[in-house]
Design a protein around this nucleic acid. Structure first.
Lengths: 340, 340
DNA sequence: ATGAAAGCGCTAACAT
DNA sequence: ATGTTAGCGCTTTCAT
């Protein structure tokens, strides 16, 4: 009943033979139809349909050398923050008819390398990467080999390497200062591994806020490293925190997924938010405002982040010089951190 | 300070020349190192490093004919349901050292076609697709051209086309029956366009539950088509609903993102949930339990869905016959639909 | 307007 | 163990 699977993909040669023209002519109707007389064009088109011919992208690309595809690697594809960024990227790429290959490193440098390699082997125009750890030499090497690189959500240490990031020091400071203003004198920080730059910088911001308030970070700050930057990580971190008798009265979570896990755990343990413990998240994802206790969070311009990154990449491909873009975050105060 | 961008990628020829061997030998150290004597191998490896040679994937693939990459196309990459499915896919693919190219159709058949074409041109091993509308001939044609196809989250009408889906009729029925059991006699259904099969089937399930309860769907069911299957769509649908004076006392939302928008709007409008209006969602995403009013939702085995789909695809590539897998959903009752 | 042919980078026979 | 070479499918001169 259904069409049998074909043994071999039809090639441009098969089309040429069937249409009784040369391969050059077939190539022309594919790429410059106006160079071909209407009658032969018709014959070729018919042959293409007849054979269900689909040009081989590898061959075309091998010939052309480059393609209109770019790659992006994010730390966690299940995190709304990154998917919103991806949407921003796509929206910009679409304008120039580029396509996006999205990959998920899961914060694993090896996976990152693997996808980078895959992208490079396939000759992508460039890549946008949220680095999995501190090292970026492999990205510099990649760029030296002719692949455009834009650092995503991480500012570039080099003038000639493009980056689009949000000021994470400022974000951490915003969150901590807010908690201090609410009267808290000790703060727990459920943070990710310091291999991830964003985590280091948010930590720096927290320390800065503490010091500005005349507090000693060694005493006023309890940093807990969560096993993963999601709800389960937040749960684990919160359990660890609650195990200590004199835990701080405020928790700053490195992202909203982590905060979600924290809120869940606090609820299970009968700890009231914000009465017993205040919570602040990061990213201001869609559901932050709708949670049982609406979540105070540091908002980032996610869509713009991706859009601008794609913009820089396309510009670089056109020969524009590198650029470092730094957006500013914004604190959105809700019930999870304020006593009415 | 930083390495200058290279003008041309080094090829296997350059390596051969520098190492003073033939291209065949270079190819051998790349693919069958044991066939090469240690000393020459060393020379070649050095040359590769010296030139930062990265093999051209297009050329290799052109030669090989096929690759260990598969494509997946989902309706909305910002929806946790689909990203969880994607994780399931990745987890299965990793076992066989395959890689995933993920694309986002945004429910747009044209975008779907475009990505399908891109995948096919690049010779992917197969594709997993959540179809954007009712038509699947293009997928059958694709398969006839030798690309393995697995329908994702949509059951196959054909014996020899693989699919992995969840019983959406049953899911719709589960949700509606529950609301009826709670005493509601009229139900609003914030649904997506009927071009999307899942929406049709959930609707069928709702109708079935209504009829089983002796109600006339024409009177007991108010279906509203949301402009998009996310929070904004849910908001728009809910506003439309509230505009009518005698709206139903229960809302069933086609997914949790839509439900999120509904809850948000109800709250803004001062409508109490579940006292004034009960709400049921679909997907049971991570945050469903943590919302202001914990959300009753129809849970689907997301990870298994993706994992199994990838499994079928890999099996098909190895010559296994097609298979249709149908999972059963499960209702998770929470506060948004029950009066204490 | 169309055809012939070179060549993109690589792999896999086949020779040596 | 290593070299030589054909050819994967396509685009692009260069002829005609």
């Amino acid at each position: 009943m259904s069409t049998p699977v074909q043994r071999r993909r039809a090639s441009i040669n098969d089309v040429a033979r069937l249409a009784e023209v040369s391969v050059g002519t077939v190539s022309n109707v594919l790429n410059r139809p106006d160079r071909v007389s209407p009658t032969t064009r018709e014959r070729v088109v018919a042959a293409i349909a007849e054979l269900s011919f689909v040009p081989n992208g590898s061959a075309r690309q091998l010939r052309a050398g480059t393609i209109t595809t770019v790659g992006a690697i994010v730390l966690d594809i299940a995190n709304p923050f990154f998917t919103d960024v991806a949407r921003g990227i796509e929206d910009r790429l679409t304008q120039d008819d580029y396509t996006l290959m999205l990959a998920n490193s899961e914060e694993d440098p090896e996976r990152e390398q693997r996808y980078l390699r895959l992208f490079e082997e396939h000759g992508v125009q460039g890549v946008m990467v949220v680095p999995s750890d501190e090292r970026i030499d492999h990205l510099l090497a990649l760029r030296a080999r002719g692949v455009n690189v834009v650092l995503l959500d991480r500012s570039s240490p080099l003038d000639d390497l493009s980056s689009v990031a949000v000021d994470d020091v400022s974000g951490g400071e915003l969150a901590a200062r807010h908690l201090l203003e609410q009267g808290h004198t000790r703060i727990a920080f459920l943070n990710g591994p310091h291999a991830i730059r964003q985590c280091v910088e948010r930590h720096t911001g927290v320390v800065r806020a503490l010091e500005a308030a005349g507090l000693d970070p060694a005493e006023a700050l309890v940093e807990i490293t969560v096993p993963s930057l999601n709800a389960d990580g937040g749960e684990a971190g919160t359990r660890e925190l609650l195990a200590s008798a004199d835990h701080p009265s405020a928790i700053f979570c490195v992202n909203d997924l982590t905060a979600l896990g924290a809120l869940r755990t606090l609820r299970h343990e009968g700890v009231r938010v914000p009465d017993d413990v205040a919570v602040v998240g990061y990213d201001d994802v869609t559901f932050a405002a709708e949670l049982g206790t609406p979540l105070t969070s540091v908002r980032q311009p996610t869509h713009a982040l991706g859009f601008r990154a794609a913009d820089l990449l396309l510009a670089a491909a056109a020969g524009a010089p590198a650029e470092q873009v730094l957006f500013q975050p914004e604190l959105v105060v809700r019930a999870s951190s304020t006593t009415p």
